[in-house]
Design a protein around this nucleic acid. Sequence first.
DNA 1: GGATATATATGATCACCATCATGGAATAAG
DNA 2: CTTATTCCATGATGGTGATCATATATATCC
Lengths: 191, 191
Amino acid sequence: MARSSRLAVAEKREAVLDIAARLFRERGVEAVSVAEVMAAAGLTHGGFYGHFGSKEALAAEACTRAFGRNEARWTALAEDYADEGLAALLRSYLGPEHRDAPGAGCAAPSFAAEAARDAPEGGIRRAYAAGIRGLAGAIERLLPSSVRRRRRQRALLALSAMVGAVSIARAAGGDGISDEILQAVREELAG
Amino acid sequence: MARSSRLAVAEKREAVLDIAARLFRERGVEAVSVAEVMAAAGLTHGGFYGHFGSKEALAAEACTRAFGRNEARWTALAEDYADEGLAALLRSYLGPEHRDAPGAGCAAPSFAAEAARDAPEGGIRRAYAAGIRGLAGAIERLLPSSVRRRRRQRALLALSAMVGAVSIARAAGGDGISDEILQAVREELAG
DNA sequence: GGATATATATGATCACCATCATGGAATAAG
DNA sequence: CTTATTCCATGATGGTGATCATATATATCC
């Protein structure tokens, strides 16, 4: 109907991306329609292809954004609790709040299925791999300097266990084992 | 068109379940149509609702089946390599063959997204939780008796790391970090 | 062997969705 | 202030898919 100003256009695009990043993490890319994303941003579906080349392209960008926001939070957490090493991150990542709020949580568990089923050179897969590299590096930096050898391996173990624990805890939510897993992984990785 | 004998009916149902368990693990429940599952079993889509109440019910049964077959394989592996403890399982689970063949692989990474997004009392979620309990118990039994304390926690850490590593390795497949993660988690859990 | 029950094929239905086409209206440019 | 640009809303379009209805041929039962 009406044309928007340049600033408004850029803002809308950002809003669409943020909303897509949330909805895709909550319910998966396939279960969310383009029209729904646009509606949640206060638009109709028609203008979508002016902003993004395809739904797949949106998903790839949303994946990158979700990873980016996550890594930023990890870094902030590391600065706020510099003396704790991994502990602060483990508390936050393996807490029930994170398990129960996938829309605002880490992209690694949420986009894993989408990325795994993406094409070999697909955008989501690429975004995912880049995001994982970022998170792995962030954990490596958080490991105490007392961990000399196998620092990288330790970081990858921690990342895998964190992502796996949250994935399983979400999938088994409602069963007592969900909390048990979060707790166990937290204690084992901290110790 | 033609009616099948009782035995044939039971066999077809089993075949449909096995095929569904494979296709759902490979491509996710949403991406596989009922008609495709039936066609792969040599049937047409019409008879489906004579066997299963809904696609969702099929998915729940397929999930249970996939977990069951998996646990059986773990048990067999444990008997064949009784002296190795976890090592044999780690070799198999964290190998590239398992990463690259989700259709025949562990249900835990493949059904995680479906279960997490299932209803609070949904069938897939329930099947998933039961499956996880089974796998956790199997790992616990595999841990060497030298691990006295925190045996349960250790098992849950190992399970989480295994599932997380395969999930990430699949999602980042094509990037070098995929192999790196499998290798790192294997070494860390074994050591 | 005839009658009945039922598994399955064909085909319809209804809904959803990604993507494209068009037009109007406001904004940017001159 | 005029004019051209372009953002976006309305509305196809074409495809897909879950589920249901019906017909038919065959297995099971008596």
